[in-house]
């Protein structure tokens, strides 16, 4: 989307940050860019990108996340290498941050090493989630996240959807709210996200950049052909 060295994804709880971060990292890797992905989500250990580790490894993406048995630990674990990668690296860095201002607190603990000039901070918005029903609430959330994360939000990703019941109208409706929010914040909407099944239809309806999403993180029961025996969520 942009060419900043560091992309930080923030947003409200369940807005789709992890999904977008994974897609972004995989797209970058597919285009030949060396990329590192970091998991800073200490809020909900069930749904971390750690479960995507194999997928990322296959794609050549370096993952900074708890190792071994700590993958499943109910503990806030920040791997120390994140500090050195933030300071200096010739790789693109995509950081998935936990939801809401609570999740963004972890960013605050890294404020001394985040290279603000080289960092884009993208806020993912789904207006069909109860915590952000409208632009007013979204603006308030941005302010809260910026305050505790100590990092200005530089762009918005419109990610309004209803999972399998998403229609083009749902996406466009969400885009309109995101644009309103962006106007009031003075930041651009850098992309509108859409599932690969519907992305073409969205493209025909808007001239905004469409971020075509492969659904990566999904519950085991959503994958009838690939029943998982692992923890709650898997990568398809």
């Amino acid at each position: 989307m942009t060419r900043s060295r560091v992309t930080v994804l923030v947003g409200h709880f369940g807005s789709g940050k992890t999904e977008i971060a994974l897609n972004l990292a995989l797209d970058l890797a597919a285009s030949g860019t060396p990329v590192t992905m970091a998991d800073l989500d200490v809020v909900k250990p069930y749904f971390r990108t750690r479960s995507a580790r194999q997928l990322l490894a296959d794609a050549g993406v370096e993952l900074l996340a708890p190792e071994g048995e700590h993958i499943h630990a109910d503990l806030p674990i920040i791997v120390p290498q994140i500090r050195s990668r933030l300071r200096q690296s010739d790789r693109r860095l995509v950081i998935d941050v936990g939801g809401d201002d609570v999740g963004a607190r972890v960013l605050g603990s890294l404020a001394d090493v985040v290279p603000v000039a080289e960092t884009e901070c993208l806020l993912v918005l789904n207006f069909r989630r109860p915590s952000t029903p409208d632009a007013d609430r979204a603006v308030a959330m941005v302010r809260e996240i910026e305050a505790v994360g100590r990092l200005p939000v530089t762009g918005l990703v419109a990610n309004t959807h209803l999972m399998d019941e998403t229609t083009v109208e749902v996406i466009l409706d969400g885009l309109r709210s995101a644009l309103e929010c962006g106007r009031r914040l003075g930041v651009p909407v850098v992309a509108v996200a859409a599932d690969e099944a519907i992305a073409d239809q969205v493209r025909r309806s808007t001239d905004r950049t469409v971020l075509e999403l492969r659904r990566i993180v999904a519950p085991a029961f959503a994958l009838p052909r690939r029943r998982s025996t692992g923890p709650l969520f898997v990568v398809n």
Partner: peptide, 12 residues
């Protein structure tokens, strides 16, 4: 607790 206090270690 820099992580949960949400501030860098030196500030913590």
């Amino acid at each position: 607790c820099p992580t949960n206090w949400g501030i860098p270690p030196a500030e913590a």
